[in-house]
Design a protein around this nucleic acid. Structure first.
Lengths: 211, 211
DNA sequence: CCCAATATGGAGCGGTTGATCCAAAATATG
DNA sequence: CATATTTTGGATCAACCGCTCCATATTGGG
């Protein structure tokens, strides 16, 4: 019994997520947001609350896709390939992004004030989720016999998480294929995980995607 | 033949570096800066130019200490211990910081726009310096016979750099000793580098420092 | 001792910020 | 068709932004 919304909330969130991802929280103004989301202040504030709460939802929206990637790999690849595939996907996507936005989660992890318990906690929890993904896959691979029992899954997961985050930092300022693939590849190799596709193959692949 | 400065430029830079480190570039206002540096707008702008240039110098000031740390380790420790010591120092310092500021270089790496070629390049170059430190130490250790020749110094350096950056991201939102030490420790171990001091010992050591 | 030269204090510039408010528009229900 | 309810557009708010300007203070050189 009232006027219906003229905009798609999901699409608006997607737009908001995009700007926040590109420019960061502080550097994004509410006017940037309204322009990109195609909303007037009234609509935006009514639908999403203030800037902070909108950011929270935009981040969640971004993270949802990250979680989907993990689920997909868990369901459609062997444990070892799931881990390697995660790194491969991360590197290829990062190198393919002309805007060099890196990862919104990592960007947020460093921009968010440690005093902001709620946002900080959300980021921390998501990192634990990724760590858990690594640990579960690694452990599963060990039970299967694909992966050697030389190292504990706990430590392997911690190491993989650190390397992943490091790669995302590096990619932001030094988007060099060799640097990223070798940093990841070396770690995968030492842990007895499947290697990344050769540079030539992955280059061809990203070329195909671009066209 | 003119009035002399009443403030110490170095101390002012130190103060500026501190706020930028704590709050980031965007979230720091010129008023924050002037208050903390104890300067009026006139003095600040006359001495340091605009906010961006001040940030550049504040970052350089921060990085100088980072370089000193590398020089110190290079001069006063074996190659392997220099690498391990760098990680140890990083972790202890990070865990000891109540403000959880992490590393200003890493924070900047993600906040700086990739379009900002100058600042971005400065960050990239500093990362190369750290990578070079790892590579040189690793290579030297191999020549000495301290470190196995199983892995190339190039790749080891890339991996160490990634883990280091990853740790600094993690520390920002999950300052858990075990997580950081094991992520680093595992990598050091796999590369045949000296282990980090035991948790008990390092806890004692940081306690001593605090008192 | 006066003057050129630099530093200081602080008012204040135009513009932008995040956010609010209200009249007009659009719908489902009675 | 009227009314209650919600959305929409856009003017507008106070506060803050980075930065400039100028009068005043402080020095060294002639």
């Amino acid at each position: 019994m009232a006027r219906p919304r003229e905009f798609d909330e999901r699409a608006a969130l997607e737009a908001a997520s995009d700007i926040f991802w590109t420019k960061g929280y502080e550097a994004t103004s509410t006017r940037d947001l309204m322009a990109r989301m195609g909303l007037t202040p009234s609509s935006m504030y009514a639908a999403f609350g203030d800037k902070r709460r909108l950011f929270r939802r935009a981040l969640d929206h971004y993270l949802e896709r990250l979680r989907e990637k993990m689920s997909y790999l868990e369901a459609n690849a062997s444990p070892g390939e799931a881990i390697t595939g995660f790194f491969w996907d991360t590197i290829e996507r990062t190198l393919g992004d002309a805007l060099q936005r890196g990862c919104m989660l990592v960007n947020s992890a460093l921009e968010v004030s440690p005093q902001d318990a709620e946002l900080c906690g959300a980021v921390a929890q998501e990192l634990k989720l990724i760590e858990g993904f690594f640990r579960a896959r690694f452990s599963e691979g060990q039970q299967r016999g694909d992966i050697a029992n030389t190292h504990s899954a706990d430590n392997a997961a911690r190491q993989l998480l650190a390397v992943l985050l490091g790669i995302r930092v590096l990619a932001r300022v030094r988007p060099e294929r060799l640097l990223l693939t070798e940093a990841a590849g070396q770690t995968l190799e030492l842990l007895g995980l499947p290697p990344l596709p050769a540079a030539a193959a992955s280059a061809k692949r990203s070329l195909r995607r671009r066209s």
